[in-house]
Computed example of a mutant assay.
Amino acid sequence: MKKVLVLMSGGVDSSVTLYLLKQAGYRVQGLTFDMVGEGSRCCDVKDILDARRVASMLDVPHRVIDVREEFKKIVIDYFIKEYKSGRTPNPCVICNREIKIAMGIKIADSLGFDYVATGHYARVKKNNTPHLLKAIWREKSQEYFLSMIKREHLNRLLLPLGEHTKEDVRNIAREMGMMVSEKEESQEVCFVGKDYREFLEKAGITRKKGEILLKNGKKVGTHDGYHLFTIGQRRGINVSLGKRYYVYRIDAAANRVFVAEWDDLLSRKFIVNNVNWIEEVSFPLKCRVKVRYRHDEVDATVEDIGDEMYRVKTDKPVFAVTPGQVAAFYEEDMVLGGGIIYERED
C-alpha cells in the first residue's frame, strides 16, 4: 500500500484531500506546517487544531512540524526584500515550491512516504513523464501557483482536487460531518495579517513623503511611501488630472512613483528570469503566458537571451506587467514552466 503525506492547512480543501486519498486506498498521514504561529491567516493555532480534529475524525495520524525559521528566511524575508526594491512579489509561489513541496518531500522521504499531497485545484498527469495541468474546474484552477515547482518533484505529488469543484469539496465535507465544511478560505497573503502595508512598516519599510510624477518627469502630487503602490494601481494615487491615471513605474531608490494613462501600461515585451521549466522546451518558444493569477493568458513567443534571462513577446498588449510577479507559460492545459518578471521593455 502506497503511503501519502497530506499537507493540511486546517481548511476544507486539504481536509477533503485527506479523505479522498484514504478512500482511494492509500495509507495517509496528515502534516501541518507551523509557519508563522499565532495571528496569521493560514496555519495558526486554530487552523492546526482544525487539521488535527479532521485527522482524528478520519482515524488518521497527524503531526505538526515547526518550520517558522525556514519560512521566515525563504518566504517572509523574500517578500520584504522585493517590496523594498519597489517590486510586487508573489510569495505563495515561492512557498509552494520551497516549503510545501520541496520541504514536504524531504520530510516524506525521512518518514518513508511515497507521495506528498496538497489541496490545490490542479492536476498531475503521470505517464512516462509527469505533467502539470489545469484543474477541470477552471474558475478555481491553481496551477499558476505551482508553476515554479521543480520538475523532479511532480512524480511525488498528488493533487486529487483537480477533478472537483469547490462545491463538490464542500458537499463531501458536509456529508462527512467535517467541522471545516463552511470554513472560509484565505484570500490574501497568509502571513501579513489584515494589512500588508502595516506588516511592511513593522518590518522596517517606513512611510516617507515622496513625489508622484508623470512619465515626462512633471510632478503632479505626493505620496506617503512607494511601498503603498503596485504597477497598475489606480486607487490611492490621490492626484486630480481630469483623467484616470495608474501607477506606471516605482523608483524605490528615489522614493518616486510615476503614473500614466491606461494605454501607457500596455506592454508587448518583458523580461523574465529565475525561470523553472517543467517541460522540455526549445526556443523560440510559441506558447501562452499569464502574468498574474487573475489575468487572462495571451499568445506569446519566448526567446532565450542568455544569462538565464528570457524575453517574452506577446501577440496582444498586456496591461500592467509587474516586476516581481510570476509569468506562467502554457501549452493548452499544460504548464510549461514559470519565472519571475524582471522588467517591462515597452
Results as ranks from 00 to 15, higher is better:
Val116Phe: 08
Lys81Pro: 00
Met179Phe: 02
Arg174Trp: 09
Ser56Asn: 13
Asp109Asn: 15
Gln142Asp: 02
Pro160Ser: 08
Ile172Glu: 03
Glu82Arg: 10
Gly193Cys: 11
Phe229Pro: 01
Val259Ser: 02
Tyr310Leu: 07
Thr230Gly: 14
Val60Gln: 00
Val281Arg: 07
Glu280Thr: 14
Asp296Ile: 04
Tyr121Glu: 08
Lys218Ile: 13
Ala173Val: 07
Met35Cys: 08
Pro91Gly: 09
Met309His: 02
Ser181His: 15
Glu332Tyr: 09
Leu200Pro: 04
Leu265His: 03
Leu200Ala: 05
Phe145Ile: 01
Asp109Gly: 11
Lys208Met: 12
Phe319Pro: 04
Pro160Thr: 11
Gln29Lys: 15
Arg197Lys: 15
Ala203Gly: 04
Asp251Val: 06
His131Thr: 07
Tyr26Glu: 03
Ile271Trp: 00
Leu161Ala: 11
Val220Met: 06
Ala328Lys: 01
Lys183Tyr: 12
Glu69Leu: 10
Ile212Ser: 02
Lys316Tyr: 09
Leu285Phe: 02
Leu241Asp: 03
Asp315Lys: 14
Glu152Pro: 05
Val169Lys: 04
Asn155Leu: 09
Asn127Ile: 10
Gly232Val: 04
Asp263Glu: 15
Ile172Asp: 05
Gly11Tyr: 06
Glu201Trp: 06
Phe33Val: 08
Val4Ala: 10
Lys126His: 11
Glu69Ser: 14
His295Met: 12
Gly25Val: 06
Lys183Gly: 08
Lys313Ile: 14
Asp299Leu: 14
Gly119Ser: 09
Gln325Val: 03
Ile48Pro: 05
Cys92Val: 05
Lys209Gly: 10
Arg156Gln: 12
Lys183Asn: 09
Ala260Gln: 05
Val45Arg: 15
Val93Gly: 00
Gly204Asn: 03
Trp262Ile: 09
Asp333Thr: 09
Val16Glu: 04
Val302Gly: 01
Met103Asp: 00
Ile94Gln: 01
Glu211Asn: 14
Leu133Phe: 11
Gly339Glu: 00
Tyr248His: 14
Glu82Lys: 13
Glu261Cys: 02
Ala24Asn: 12
Gly217His: 10
Gly225Leu: 08
Ala300Glu: 01
Val289Asn: 00
Glu163His: 13
Asp44Met: 12
Tyr26Ile: 06
Lys286Thr: 09
Asp296Ala: 14
Ile76Glu: 12
Met176Ser: 06
Cys92Phe: 03
Glu297Val: 10
Tyr115Pro: 03
Glu343Asn: 11
Arg268Gln: 14
Leu161Glu: 07
Phe270Pro: 00
Tyr310Ile: 01
Asp44Val: 07
Asp195Arg: 13
Cys287Ala: 15
Ala102Gly: 08
Leu133Tyr: 12
Val335Phe: 05
Ala122Thr: 05
Val257Trp: 03
Ala135Met: 06
Arg52Asn: 12
Leu58Asn: 03
His62Ser: 09
Pro91Val: 07
Lys208Thr: 11
Ile231Ser: 02
Ile136Arg: 13
Gly162Pro: 01
Asn127Pro: 00
Arg235Ser: 15
Phe283Val: 07
Val4Gln: 06
Ile105Tyr: 04
Trp262Asn: 10
Glu82Gln: 14
Asp315Gly: 14
Lys150His: 11
Val75Lys: 07
Lys208Phe: 03
